[in-house]
């Protein structure tokens, strides 16, 4: 559905952020995009969503296709109307508006206004708390509720692809588990593909079908999630798991050298 091929992007004409990445999101799948800070995760999705001008970001090479159509040069609102909606990093809900009004704005791109009430109700099924808080100003919601609202705001547009940028950011583990459970349900019940950008590899690999690992602007590893979970390097660098019972020291790990191998 979404196909990125050899994408190279540059910030302010000098900083090469993405050095030719390729990835694909097939219909109805959850694809995880993992990586540390500065790996290029947010750059990737900003490029996909067309937010380039404000960031002084240019596409040097490569192509982005959605359902066979090139979206390289489209504006953000045109990309949304194709059915790609982003849940931005740090939630970015409209704090001054009520919860309901946030949902109204979320549905802005939908041309059919008549079934808005029905779609809103559908969203309320996933996030019942938003119904209780309908007329409250969104800025007064808790962090978890704000994240729920941000996802609901994207879902109410009935998109084909939702891009989630670090939904676990700044949330308690229990809340993260709850939200990721809902994301999984949304993916199954709404037949919507999800591109999940995360630092928290543990939760992301738990619900996704396919994963890409990004390091300094390159895809260094990719594969079905079961494979990634078993990968020795990922278990160590991203999941923090080591062999049970063995005492580890940094000298034994030599992870720096192993990591370096990825990048060369």
């Amino acid at each position: 559905m979404l196909k990125i091929a050899n994408l190279e992007t540059v910030y302010s004409d000098v900083i090469l952020a993405l050095k030719g990445i390729s990835l694909e999101v097939p219909p109805g799948m959850i694809v995880a995009l993992l990586g540390a800070n500065g790996a290029g995760k947010t750059t990737t999705i900003n490029t996909v969503c067309g937010i380039r001008k404000a960031l002084d970001l240019t596409v040097e090479d490569g192509s982005i296709e959605f359902e066979g159509e090139s979206i390289n040069d489209m504006k953000p609102h045109q990309i949304v109307s194709l059915g790609i909606v982003q849940v931005p990093e740090g939630r970015r809900i409209f704090a001054e508006l009520t919860v309901d009004e946030n949902l109204v704005i979320g549905s802005y791109s939908a041309t059919n206004r008549r079934d808005f009430a029905q779609r809103k109700e559908n969203v309320h099924n996933y996030f019942p708390i938003l119904k209780q808080r309908a007329n409250q100003r969104a800025g007064y919601l808790s962090g978890g509720e704000q994240q729920m609202l941000a996802i609901a705001r994207a879902l109410v547009a009935s998109p084909k692809l939702i891009i989630l940028d670090e939904p676990s950011l700044g949330l308690a583990p229990l809340v993260v588990a709850e939200i990721f459970g809902i994301i999984e349900r949304i993916n199954k019940q709404e037949d919507v593909a999800i591109l999940l950008v995360e630092q928290n590899a543990n939760v992301a690999l738990a619900i996704s079908h396919f994963g890409y690992i990004l390091e300094t602007g390159r895809v260094v590893l990719e594969g079905p999630t079961e494979q990634l979970r078993e990968n020795k390097d990922i278990r160590e660098f991203y999941l923090g798991l080591t062999e049970v019972g063995t005492k580890k020291s940094f000298r034994d790990v030599k992870h720096y050298r192993r990591r370096k191998r990825w990048l060369s």
Binding site: P76, V85, F94, E101, S109, A157
Partner: peptide
């Protein structure tokens, strides 16, 4: 009203 508060995010909403 949403656009006034946060134009970038408003763009993301289509």
């Amino acid at each position: 009203r949403g656009t006034a508060e946060d134009p970038d995010t408003a763009g993301l909403m289509g």
